[in-house]
Amino acid sequence: MIVTVTLNPALDITYSVPELKPGTTHRPRTAAQAGGKGVNVARTLHALGRETLAVLPLGGFDGEAVRAELDASHVPHHVIPIRGATRRTVTVVETGSPEGLATGFNEAGPELDAEEWAEICAAVGSVLETASLDMATVLVLSGKLPRGLPDDAYAELINLAAALGVPTILDTEGPALLAALPAHPAVVKPNAHELRDATGLADPARAAAELLRRGARAVVSSHGPDGLTVRTPDGTWTARPPRVDGGNPTGAGDAAVAALAIGLVDGTPWPQTLADAAALSAATVRTDRAGVFDAEAYRRFQRDIEIQREPEFQRDIEAAS
């Protein structure tokens, strides 16, 4: 079982237009679905036939729309009602661009209070306790923290999971990422920009070494079309996908997290797990919505991924110590 937690979910609206022209009227193709990074992970896992459950707080009119869409798409979910209104995100995808340009508008979302946070923690603990009794379980924590929660909120959930023997994958940034590291997440997955911002180090290897030194067990950094690199005390590997023209990069990182979670729950070696993550991420770019991937492209990319072992990383770990 892979349990995802999305603390700041959204109603995701995607507009697809040939070209975005400021100051003019557009008539886009429109899609609306439940969103937020953890929801995207759960949607991908569900499409792959994996047992998953999306845990998320919802409130207001758009919260009901998110719940209804999850019901309609049959993505298993557990909702914690909150008083604030669930946010919206709007992504404009330029289908005529070979680079797959996407312009996003992300609302801040509601503020959670201490009572609501306690209810969320209790719900996550109950779900993990039940799941871990019967099967291998992984917890995925994705996205920025909502307003009202302290920087170490994710650390609290990681510790809660660890007490039940459940490893955690964390996909967040900034202070929330740094505050979670002493709780020892099994995997953290920053992109290149988030890795640099969190550590102040321009070199990705040195930056990843710093996150390992602070408590992460493994660091998977994403580099867009250049693929994914995992850095662990036992070795470093890079997976490079084939070039993908066009599409929508929104949600590609969430697809990678889904594959990482599958690898962790199955006990798959890192090279194979990373290759699968790169293939699934690239196949998601081929579509116009987050949480949706091109199944045929995914199968093809799995055969075409290049895996390279990087032998020099131990020096960076020692330099950061």
Results as ranks from 00 to 15, higher is better:
Ala136Tyr: 07
Asp203Leu: 02
Asp254Ala: 04
Val79Ile: 14
Ala118Phe: 04
Thr236Ser: 14
Pro242Gly: 13
Pro185Met: 03
Ala85Lys: 12
Arg303Gly: 01
Gln314Glu: 15
Glu306Ile: 14
Gly38Val: 04
Gly235Trp: 05
Asp62Lys: 09
Ala239Met: 06
Val5Cys: 04
Lys37Arg: 09
Leu133Trp: 09
Ala85His: 15
Pro110Ser: 01
Asn40Ala: 00
Ala153Met: 01
Pro225Ala: 13
Ala68Gln: 12
Gly291Gln: 00
Glu99Ala: 12
Ala161Gln: 06
Leu157Ala: 00
Arg286Cys: 15
Asp276His: 11
Ala256Leu: 06
Phe301Leu: 09
Thr137Gly: 00
Ala216Met: 07
Ala179Arg: 07
Gly59Ala: 01
Glu99Ser: 11
Val285Tyr: 02
Ala198Leu: 02
Ala279Ser: 01
Thr236Met: 10
Val79His: 10
Pro249Tyr: 05
Ala180Cys: 06
Val166Lys: 07
Leu201Gly: 09
Phe313Arg: 07
Asp197Gly: 09
Leu181Gln: 14
Ala34Arg: 04
Arg29Gln: 13
Val265Lys: 05
Pro182Arg: 08
Asp171Val: 08
Ala42Thr: 08
Gly84Val: 01
Tyr15Ile: 07
Ala10Gly: 03
Thr130Lys: 09
Glu310Asp: 15
His74Cys: 13
Glu94Gln: 08
Arg43Phe: 00
Ala179Met: 07
Asp12Leu: 03
Leu178Gln: 15
Arg303Pro: 04
Asp134Met: 10
Pro249Ser: 00
Ala208Ser: 12
Val39Glu: 03
Ser321Gly: 15
Leu178Asp: 14
Leu170Cys: 07
Gly253Asn: 03
Gly38Glu: 01
Val3Asn: 04
His77Ser: 13
Leu264Asn: 03
Gln314Leu: 15
Arg67Glu: 15
Leu45Arg: 02
Thr273Pro: 11
Met1His: 13
Pro242Tyr: 10
Ala208Gln: 01
Val124Ile: 01
Ala68Arg: 14
His193Glu: 15
Ser97His: 11
Asp113His: 00
Val219Trp: 13
Phe105Thr: 01
Leu178His: 15
Val187Lys: 04
Glu111Met: 08
Gly36Cys: 03
Leu11Cys: 04
Glu210Met: 09
Pro225Cys: 00
Ala186Val: 07
Ala180Asn: 03
Phe61His: 14
Pro241Gly: 02
Tyr154Val: 05
Ile158Ala: 04
Gly63Cys: 00
Pro81Tyr: 11
Gly23Ile: 10
Arg83Ala: 12
Ala258Thr: 02
Pro242Arg: 13
Val188His: 08
Ala162Glu: 11
Gly247Ile: 02
Pro28Arg: 14
Ala278Met: 03
Val55Leu: 14
Glu312Ile: 10
Val244Lys: 12
Ala10Cys: 09
